[in-house]
Design a protein around this nucleic acid. Structure first.
Length: 130
DNA sequence: TTTCTGACA
DNA sequence: TGTCAGAA
């Protein structure tokens, strides 16, 4: 099942293709790369080459944006996913469930709405996450 | 022609 | 985020 993962990680699309596939502007795509949300490789000419994985992430970002989540919130989501996968190597299992994501989005929503005295990094103290 | 980086009336 | 410039 590793072959499949490698294929999805193979960077082959130029930004133009990604733009039409995701309906995002080159500006946005490059910006998301700056935010470390995607990590496209570069070809000989310094052109960004995106993988199917990158496109999936971009599509997810688009959905979050459509739901009114700001960049800070989106970054948190991916930061959590990353930390989770690192923790995974130590604690054997535990994945962020859809429910966790929903709770995170809800917290973010309250934060954005100013209905909460916020402190974004709080739930990274994943004591109650498990 | 397409993409890259940097900058901002 | 859009958009323009100058370069590759």
């Amino acid at each position: 099942m590793r072959e499949k993962e490698l294929r999805r990680s193979r960077s082959v699309f130029p930004i133009g293709t990604v733009m039409t596939l995701t309906d995002l502007s080159a500006r946005q795509i490059r910006y998301y790369e700056e935010q470390d949300l995607i990590h496209p490789e570069r070809n000989e000419g310094n052109r960004r080459m995106f993988s199917l994985n990158d496109i999936d992430v971009l599509l997810e970002i688009k959905d979050y944006l459509a739901d009114g989540i700001n960049m800070a919130g989106i970054k948190q989501i991916y930061t959590l996913k990353k930390e989770e996968s690192e923790t995974k190597k130590q604690k054997e299992h535990q994945m962020i469930t859809d429910e966790d994501v929903r709770r995170i989005l809800h917290t973010e929503f309250l934060s954005v709405s100013g209905l909460m005295s916020k402190e974004p990094t709080q739930y990274i103290d994943s004591k109650d996450l498990f």
